[in-house]
Nucleic acid binder design. Structure first.
Lengths: 210, 210
DNA sequence: ATAAAAACTGACATTTTTGTCAACTTTATA
DNA sequence: TATAAAGTTGACAAAAATGTCAGTTTTTAT
């Protein structure tokens, strides 16, 4: 009678299977991109028959678009509590820390999106583009206000922001290059901490001795 | 009698066609990666029949490996004249300028290699890996010596170097994100100059006002 | 001019991938 | 417990991609 005959029954079969499929898909896409991933591979990796995957998603396209949306939401969740209302030094430190945490904990999502950007972001909807633009602009405004208040030098907020994005995302997207550079087989939390210190220190104070 | 019946006859048909094929291939690979690119597409883009392409390259693999080698050589050529024996400020300025020039002028090669790194660099030979490592290490040594000489702060040369690489490569790999951020349809030389100024200024002197 | 080497190509067999469907099983609901 | 709805699947046809080859044309060297 009860809708739960056993404890572990997730509310919906649909939801459980969609997650299986999306998880398998994002991993494959993160390695080989949209065109490089076969529908059949996704089915295999999901441990579901192909026809069953078609039951949930009508095309590879549909899976991919769902993932794009999920990743963008993931960012919003990860960074919504970042408080830029601090003094520049603290704010930037926190921001870079958060970005590196994201890179460390979500490398698959990062690489997935890197593929999308490499192909030119063709799959992004107008709305999603706008959203990214809005978030970016908000950050730029913070920088601008710091400049106006004489708290930081007069530099291009856009390029500065890109530098932060680039420096942190790199650790997720090109982990193997970092490993090669650090001559380590696997990056540890400590490595990310060192990255953070180096980036923050260079960007805040510069590398030159005064 | 003369080996040139007409002026424009390139020395070798083989060489000309290989270039046609490699040019078409690197563009496709730069957009869709190795797995996402079909042999047939390369043939189409080369304007040669598929069987003709097979005459020159026995597999997609072979084309790809040739390109990897070419790109690595391209770097060596592009950066061999970079002189790091200057004072830190000048050296870093020159280096970042050269990297951004490369990003601006060779976006296809950059993206091609970005794909390769995203998939973990599986196609790189031991020798190529070692070469990259060696070049990187040389740069690190320069930084270390500056630190020892008290010319720059005591920061991790590895992470610092990664930051430079990341910040400059980003403009090639994710051009569309940059365009979105700058709200421009196409980046100009001027934009790259601004990037250079911002990166150099931040990294050398820091963004904080003293 | 001619023979050998290099370059070219249409056509074909094979393999891989795609997408659909009808039949079947499980789960939810009344 | 009956019935509808949701979920599952093997099997198949169609389409796309791969790789080869025999036969041809063009280029090179003598």
């Amino acid at each position: 009678m009860n809708k739960n005959t056993n404890k572990k029954s997730e509310k919906k079969i649909r939801s459980r299977n969609e997650i299986k499929i999306l998880d398998a898909a994002v991993l494959l896409f993160s390695k080989k991109g949209f065109d490089g991933t076969r529908f059949m591979e996704i089915a295999k990796a999901s441990e579901l028959p192909k026809a069953n995957v078609y039951y949930y998603f009508s095309s590879k396209n549909e899976i991919y678009e769902r993932l794009i949306e999920n990743v963008i939401q993931g960012w919003d969740n990860a960074f919504e509590h970042i408080n830029l209302d601090l003094e520049p030094a603290d704010a930037i430190d926190t921001y870079i820390g958060a970005k590196l945490d994201y890179a460390r904990l979500n490398p698959i999502e990062s690489r997935f999106f890197a593929h999308e950007m490499l192909r030119g972001g063709e799959f992004l909807t107008r709305k999603q583009r706008q959203h990214i633009r809005d978030v970016t602009r908000k950050h730029e405004h913070v920088l601008e206000s710091w400049i106006l208040q004489g708290k930081i030098r007069d530099i291009s907020p856009q390029h500065f922001f890109i530098m932060l994005w680039a420096s942190t995302e790199f650790y997720a997207n090109f982990t193997n290059v970092v490993e090669l550079t650090l001559e380590k087989r696997k990056l540890t939390k400590k490595d990310y901490d060192n990255a953070r210190k180096t980036i923050v220190n260079s960007i805040l104070n510069g590398c030159l001795k005064k």
